[in-house]
Design a binder for these strands. Structure first.
Length: 603
RNA sequence: GCCGACAUAGCUCAGUUGGCUAGAGCAGCUGAUUUGUAAUCAGCAGGCCCGGGGUUCAAAUCCUCGUGUCGGCACCA
């Protein structure tokens, strides 16, 4: 195996070129699939790609080409229009360069020399602007030279197993005010197998895509004539969603939440009072009724505030918890829309807790426990993230400081691990976000717990304290799933469509062997409804094999086959979804089993 | 919103350099068959080829403006 780089004592990786320059010896890094080796390999593959692009498009200018989580990319600009179909061509050129086994040479020049060297490349000039030091290093392979700090492989011949995966636009410096460059993403590995494994993993993720499964399993759909970002829930999706809603309803009632409901749109004056008009107006939908402007709610808090204001409250009443499956509309930009993950209308499992300052901690802890119950039921790992004051914010620094500290205290006192996201808070308060990890290791943000000292102030909310003085309550916004749309999308991918019994759109598929067994099937189906289980009878004029196949393809958790034997003995023949094994059990036991599986879940 | 790609039957997809009545599989319907654990057979029906405008003797195919979708970027209070 080839030695490609050196690891210094402090963990920093330097390439063999630099080590030679410095006369440095340290721990050798070999070309394998270790994170260190892949970092170097992928960086050099990015350069090889740049070399290929430069040879194919001579006016190409290059910005930066870093290694990222998914591989590497390079941002560049050329007068030619490059599309997906060109990736193959570039890959081919890369391979032909790699075959030439150019050595990657490194040398150092002054920044002024570099400016002169890349004088025709305004992107490299922009890169040079960002470099503070007076000397810069240049890497050279064949005719191609690039400004880079490394580390790199000693020879491009070591690059063999790679693939260019995506092409897209990307703003210069990640700022939408700047010009747009072309970005090509790629991936590279030390071995053929590792590359193949990676590509297989991508295919697996593709198979789980909720948009594909949602279509196949008839959960939801979108229609051009309805409008972008407005999901349509189909019967199967409706059943799944209803199960989730009813489980969650009970869970809220158990914890003392009251169901309430605010209107879909409220007068704009209220959004001005809340601050949404000024801070979020461009993402809201407005309409006029008799010359008065209304804003369609992008959040449910104002409605809940109006519920709170409906009567006077004593300190004894607090905390007061309102919850609602609140439908909200937000104008997401066209390019942001993505299946159920980003839509323009969605339903939040939203709640607002109005409490005294001295209750914040216990309330946060209770919500965090609620989150844990739900996420562990769905077998999600998760972590928590505290987000602090963002740039665009309302409220004084002092209020922010107090509320942020309250969140940290709640976590610290209960020894809960969390990370800090500086500047990631909502404009009205700091928050705790819950990030979950799904079955194939992808991270998603769902739940959020947000402290708000701001809205109570703006709406002059109050309660009577024990000394009969008016005191302003604290408001906690929280959603656990986030939205039903997004969460069901995530669940679909998490389970690859094979939903567990308690939320599956259909619990049981019943396959009668022949015409004469249909009646028994119907009786069984009715009994299943009595225990809150949905079933579907596959009695179409098809072969038994065909109907079992059809039932299997719906990903229903349980299939039972019914024929003469079963009717005679009052049993069912159960077929397991995954193992395809069959076993018989009495009808009574079967119903009990289903009932248990449905009822064993409680948040 | 920006860069690039794409849009043909309910679904998945063919459709050649512009040229006959736009095809297939699955799903659907009708009939035969009544089946014991992953596709029985035969027949039928199903298309504003995303929408508007244009080029052309002729457009699913070329151009243009929309709409929607996909991959990213930016955005996600």
């Amino acid at each position: 195996m080839n030695e490609i780089a050196i690891k210094k004592n402090d963990g920093e990786i330097i390439d063999t070129q630099t080590a030679k320059e410095l006369g440095f010896e340290g721990e050798a890094i070999f070309l394998d699939n270790s994170p260190e080796a892949l970092e170097v390999l992928r960086h050099s593959t990015a350069h090889l790609m740049a070399q290929a692009i430069k040879s194919l498009y001579s006016d190409a200018e290059f910005y930066v080409g870093p290694v990222v989580k998914e591989g590497f990319y390079y941002d560049f600009k050329t007068s030619a229009e490059i599309g997906e179909s060109d990736l193959k061509k570039i890959e081919k050129q890369m391979l032909s360069f790699a075959k030439k086994k150019y050595e990657i040479e490194k040398y150092t020049i002054t920044k002024a020399e570099a400016r002169e060297k890349f004088k025709d490349d305004h992107l490299k000039q922009a890169v040079l602007d960002m470099i503070p030091s007076d000397e810069v290093s240049i890497y050279k392979q064949g005719e191609f030279e690039d400004l880079c700090r490394g580390p790199h492989l000693p020879n491009i011949g070591l690059i063999r197993y790679f693939k260019l995966t995506k092409i897209s636009g990307a703003y210069l410096g990640g700022d939408s005010k700047n010009e747009m460059l072309t970005r090509i993403y790629g991936i590279a590995f030390a071995t053929k197998d590792a590359l193949k494994e990676h590509m297989d993993m991508l295919r697996e993720a593709e198979k789980r895509d909720h948009r594909k499964l949602g279509n196949e399993m008839k959960l939801f759909t979108f229609r051009e004539e309805v409008g972008a970002g407005f999901p349509i829930w189909l019967p199967a999706g409706g059943r799944l969603r209803a199960r989730l809603e009813s489980l969650l309803f009970k869970a809220h009632r158990k914890r003392g939440y009251e169901p309430v409901r605010g209107p879909e749109m409220l007068r704009s004056d209220l959004w001005m009072t809340s601050g949404h008009y000024q801070n979020y107006g461009e993402n809201m939908y407005f309409t006029k009724i008799d010359d008065i402007e209304f804003g369609v709610k992008p959040m449910n808090c104002v409605g809940h505030i109006k519920v709170y204001e409906d009567e006077l409250h004593s300190y004894r009443d607090l905390p007061i918890k309102y919850f609602e499956y609140g439908v909200v509309h937000r104008h997401e930009m066209t390019g942001a829309l993505h299946g159920l993950f980003r839509v323009r209308e969605f339903t939040q499992d939203d709640a607002h807790i109005f409490c005294r300052a001295d209750q914040i901690e216990e309330q946060i802890i209770e919500v965090v426990d609620f989150v844990d119950k739900i996420m562990s039921t769905f077998e999600f790992d998760y972590k928590m993230m505290i987000s602090t004051r963002p740039e665009k914010a309302v409220g004084s620094d002092e209020v922010w400081e107090i509320s942020t500290q309250a969140l940290k205290n709640a976590m610290d006192k209960n020894e809960l691990a969390y990370e800090i996201d500086e500047g990631g808070g909502a404009f009205y308060g700091p928050k705790i976000d819950i990030k979950i990890t799904d079955a194939i290791g992808r991270e998603w943000q769902c739940g959020t717990i947000q402290l708000d000292f701001n809205l109570p102030e703006r709406f002059h909310l109050e309660y009577n304290a024990d000394n009969n003085e008016k005191v302003q309550p604290v408001m906690i916004h929280r959603a656990i799933l986030g939205s039903f749309e997004r969460f069901i999308g995530i669940l679909t991918e998490h389970y690859a469509g094979e939903f567990p019994m308690f939320i599956a759109p259909t619990q049981v598929a019943i396959v009668p062997v022949a015409e004469s067994h249909k009646e028994y099937a119907k009786l069984l189906s009715d009994k299943l409804i009595d225990i809150n289980a949905d079933s579907e009878i596959y009695a179409k004029n098809d072969s038994l094999n065909k109907r079992i196949r059809t039932a299997e393809k719906t990903r229903v958790p349980m299939i039972v086959v019914i024929g003469d034997e079963e009717i005679k003995n009052n049993t069912v023949a159960v077929r397991d979804r995954r193992t395809r094994e069959q076993y018989n059990m009495s009808q009574e036991d079967f119903l009990k089993l289903i009932q248990t599986k449905i009822n064993e879940v409680n948040f």
